[in-house]
Design a protein around this nucleic acid. Structure first.
Ligand code: MN
Ligand code: MN
Ligand code: ZN
Ligand code: ZN
Lengths: 138, 138
DNA sequence: CCGTTTATTGAAAGACATTTTCACTAGTCT
DNA sequence: AGACTAGTGAAAATGTCTTTCAATAAACGG
């Protein structure tokens, strides 16, 4: 079974057609999708899927760390699938593709410095990279 | 004269009461403000200020690098003043205060690594830190 | 399997947020 | 001061997200 099924089960949430549709749409997508777009695509799999349910599902999945919100220069967030835990994403300026990157986020040096300068105690961050994917560089 | 007046002049934009009001509101604020909030506060200085104009002004100022959009976990962006050029912000989880931090953003190591792993050519990033400001730590 | 229980769903309406239009206003430059 | 035009703001249109509530369908025990 896929991971999200386990996670939902473990937390006492039901595995429904709607949730499955949303998950499958996100799994097939390479770029961040708006709730609207997720709903449209999801209806190909589960025609009665409602936009309200998409919003609720995304909220739940975000809480469970199954999905992450991606911020865009202008109109703001779409959603991409994310492995649970703390991840970051690179976005392609050309085609919109989104890709997770693992690897240490070695922000520790920077964070220490900012704590020193500002007196803040830093406990979280939002980091996204942007550029051109290998395909769009050609 | 303040910096923004020069920047607008240089680009052939007019210095208007509305723009002045928006700028002064942002200069007085310590936390990111929504367009709504900017409009309300701006009307104390220029009573006929319209919300539409606040939106237009923020778009223009953002293009000119005079203002930056701040992303928030949930409901998304407010605006803060920014010195022109590339800056970053720390947000206080307690009181909402926003503070720019200068100092090298030493993401170069991280960026090199991600370019190696993914094949992307990285040319931009979105980085915001969050935590508790000195006041809210007490 | 077949009911029972209850989390989940989706349509409709409501609340907000943002954009478009267009006649009017007020900066800027003679 | 007057002309020119970028900029403004009210109203309406459009979008986005939330709330409500009766109906549905997962999950579970018999
Ligand atoms: Mn990180
Ligand atoms: Mn930077
Ligand atoms: Zn690309
Ligand atoms: Zn604080």
């Amino acid at each position: 079974m896929s991971l999200w099924v386990d996670v939902l089960g473990r937390e006492g949430h039901r595995i429904t057609r709607s949730r499955r549709a949303v998950m499958e749409v996100l799994a097939d997508a390479q770029a961040p999708l708006s709730p609207q777009m997720i709903c449209e695509r999801g209806r190909k799999r589960h025609p009665s899927l409602g936009l309200v349910t998409v919003y609720r599902t995304l909220d739940l999945f975000e809480d469970l760390g199954l999905v992450m919100r991606v911020h865009h220069g202008a109109g703001c967030h779409g959603y991409v699938l994310s492995s649970p835990g703390h991840r970051h994403v690179v976005l392609c300026d050309g085609c919109g593709r989104a890709e997770e990157f693992v690897g240490a986020d070695d922000l520790d040096g920077l964070i220490d410095r900012v704590e020193g300068h500002t007196g803040y105690r830093i406990d979280g961050h939002l980091l996204q990279l942007a550029g051109l994917c290998p395909v769009c560089q050609a």
